[in-house]
Design a protein around this nucleic acid. Sequence first.
DNA 1: ATCCCTCGAGTTCA
DNA 2: CTCGAGGGAT
Length: 686
Amino acid sequence: MSTSNLSNEVIAKIEDLRRRLDRANYLYYVKDQPEISDAQYDSLMRALQELEARYPQAVTPESPTQRVGATPLTEFTPHVHLAPMLSLANAFGEDELRAFDERCHKALELPSDEPIEYVCELKFDGLAVSLTYQDGKLIAGATRGNGMQGENITENLKTIKAIPLNMHNSKLDKPGAKPIPNLVEVRGEAILTHDEFHRINDEREESGEPTFANPRNAAAGSLRQLDPKITAMRRLTMFCYGVGAYEGVDFESQNKVLCALGDWGFKVNPNVKVCTNIDEVAAYINDWHTKKEKLPYDIDGMVVKVNSFAYQSQLGSVARSPRWAVAYKYPAMQATTVIIDIIVGVGRTGALTPVAIMEPVEVSGVTVSRATLHNEDEVHRKDVRIGDTVVIQRAGEVIPEVVEVVKEKRKGTEVEFHMPTKCPVCNADVERAPGEAVARCVGIACPAQIRENIIHFTSRTAMDMDGIGPALVDQLIESGLIHDPADLFFLKAENMAILDRMAQKSAENAYNAIQASKTAPLSRLIYALGIRHVGERTAAALAEHFGNIDAVTNASEEVLAEVPDVGPVVAASVVRFFHQEETAEVLRKLKEAGIDPKVEGRQQTEAFAGKSIVFTGALTKLTREQAEQLVYKLGASPSSSVSKKTSLVVAGEKAGSKLDKAHSLGVPVISEDEFLEMVKESGADL
DNA sequence: ATCCCTCGAGTTCA
DNA sequence: CTCGAGGGAT
């Protein structure tokens, strides 16, 4: 391996390979229009690596092989920006945007009817970065830091393929094209796309590492790695939008800067608009308010800049921000606040739910003061403590959630949360089933559960008693007028009118709503009872299968398990529910109030209603299916296996084990003919 | 036994 | 809307 035989031919070969690799990179990472395949790229890269290995003296820092440095750093060194990286003043809402326009008019001494040209650019939510190029070669890259001085992260930035190691000079023949300056600081934002962010978090989750709260944090974390190999694995990208210091080139406007950056091989976001006046700016901002959600990366606003550089220098800067630009911020989806307390709520099923009570804060236009923490594990996973400063957001724009704790703000006085061992409402024991996430109050007469249960009963999706809300339910319980859902049906308007702030009119409305609910379909009633694991769908399936409430009440676990989507857990839950004395009492009162809904198309015959019937052997006059449909129509539930809950077995010819089982369990058995006779006598309307 | 899908339950604010 | 659990398919 000698250094002496580096011929011109070899140099030319190396340079050709580098040119082709740089171009492939540019087309792939900047233009998103690859022209060669990954395999072709790899083979070019391998060829270059081999040549460089053979002629180490030919390796330059700008070679495409040098994107991932070999050795990790021990620390970052400071980097002084040649021109400061200013921060922008914020504008919230159109009024502040127009105020900015007026300030510009005033400072430029322009009449207000003479419009100023502005450039609108997306404001990326990433990490601001400055790249320094000397004679077209990347010599340094740094974070923004305090604006004057940042950290030198050149090795990490070189791993970003969208950043050219060499500026392009191929478009010089294009009219208005700018030559490669001898010195330029290119300013931009390093970001992670949503896809990449999720990929990284998935990987971290799998390997048990803490996940990043958002793409910006992930991007920042990735660039602050001392080992560039790690940064290289986080496939960051970078949009460039401006210049700091520059020599050997001149610009007339911000728009020309963006064009030049594009020509030089930098990635420039295409969603830029030159607006002839502030109205167009406002319209463009408004346009992107919804469109921004469809972008594959995060933006948190729009940057509005005075286009003309002449105007820009006339406007100058105040303090640390230029007067010629403003950052329009869309209403923040995230905010920071302080956890005042973590309280525990008791749900209808006894579930204890920790809820964070926070210093009220505005998030996307709404004041938020509480957020669910779901369960104890969740609290500890996020390590939320009372007194913590937390980042919150509205998940799906609606429900507030705690995203993360700002650990840097910890004072050491924060209090850890522990699930109480006694119910905060009724002081009964709290149990957490092994393997389950929720802790439950086991108190059968827990007032909180009774309250939630009644509220659930009246709710729109259950019995739909319009006009009866939590407040009224509380008063009714407190005054002793009701103890369970069924009591609602015995209320009289006069009784309710006695209550605080209960006008005669609204008492009548409530009374009418209760009476109207008496005709609710069976599925609603079953759902309203609030059986654990029985929601709207399962309630509908049970109603459909059994046809009346008695049939459900008497059903065994086996019979229940025949219902579609009902398995052992749901079946056991239903049986347990109907075994409770309280349930029997409620059902009795419902009947007394005349509530016993039937499913349409089913008749409730004396002989069959609520019975569980099994057919066995070969039927001669009916098919098995017809027979099952028949008893279903008459109010019974057909079943396929015999248990002690079975009311009746209809045995056809050559009946086998089911008949034996019926005999051994003492279940009545009849023949097919007897069955048909029974149907006839039932008086059913066939 | 394991994965995927659906359903249930709890939650916020205007 | 999100998480967790149950059911059913594989």
